[in-house]
Design a protein around this nucleic acid. Structure first.
Lengths: 170, 170
DNA sequence: TAAGATTGAGCGCTCAATCTTA
DNA sequence: TAAGATTGAGCGCTCAATCTTA
């Protein structure tokens, strides 16, 4: 064990910042309040996704990213989406999605289908087996999201968070 | 361009959820408000870090993770930290940090030093060149964090966010 | 025995190049 | 010309195994 116990790493960044009187003018240093808001987001996200990913992987052999893809398809019309749309909705590059869908297809959770209206296009389609796997995994995942995230907030706060996220869209 | 314009992907997950009357009992489905709070976090984080990482990499050849490591060291006593502590404060596995420090050392931004009190231990130490590189990169990065994130919130909201993040610490 | 750090193997992603169709 | 999808190359990470010291 390390001798220094670090309860949090959101320290006020002592050196290098306070002494300097705003170097150029247009980009003053982040103050303590700003740092906590920003680095808190990074740390919270990292800790949450790491925990959820490990758990989902261990319990159902399904990494978080795969889970998200299955979810998107389950919610889509006819349980299918264009590769392009699917990539952007799970925030993955197009090539990244191609490879992820390769893996899920190999497991039988997703099928590919030609797009009728645009011969360049392809659909990813959720299979029955994919639906079943998703249904198996959902209870554990939802409970974890509740326990680790949602339960820490009141109803009003959850609504507030949603408003906050919406504000970040470009 | 896809024919369907998706302004947001936070839809109420129509199928599969509303009809089923809470399958087992202990893990009811996430409702719309919960989904927006949760998936909003995932999307906001992904979009923000991707943008910042690209910009930092393009402008200063410094991926976000490397930047975070240099920051931690710049803020630490004597600009040095034990590998173990550094890994946990940037949320990286120990082996992941070993390799990242390898790269930064090859670039001359970090040195390694033996730990005097524990012969198993090693310090990562920020070099002068590392400080200089960080100082170069900071203005752009800070401005982006401001523009893409901080500026979307009032002072009170930033304080509230910090409180929210603190609540998530297990 | 266990903890700090590193190494070998390999996974999952991105970028750039490519092929196909609009 | 440009867009959708895939492929080749390669980067950055993790897990498990290993070495060293507590």
């Amino acid at each position: 064990m390390p001798t220094t116990i670090k309860t949090t790493d959101l320290k006020p960044s002592r050196v290098d910042e306070a002494p300097v009187p705003a170097p150029a003018g247009s980009e003053p240093c982040l103050d303590d309040r700003e740092l906590r808001a920003w680095r808190g987001l990074l740390r919270a996200h990292a800790a949450l996704t790491k925990a959820l990913d490990n758990q989902l992987e261990a319990g159902h052999g399904l990494p978080l990213m795969s889970y998200e893809v299955l979810m998107q398809l389950a919610d889509a019309d006819e349980r299918r989406m264009r590769m392009r749309d699917l990539a952007s909705s799970v925030i993955l590059s197009r090539s990244g999605l191609t490879r992820l869908v390769d893996r899920l297809q190999r497991e039988g959770l997703i099928d590919r289908e030609q797009c009728a209206s645009d011969a360049r296009g392809a659909y990813a389609v959720l299979t029955e087996s994919g639906r079943a796997r998703l249904r198996e995994a959902q209870p554990l995942h939802r409970e974890s999201v509740r326990q680790r995230f949602l339960s820490r907030f009141s109803d009003d706060e959850l609504r507030e968070l949603a408003v906050f996220w919406a504000r970040l869209q470009t």
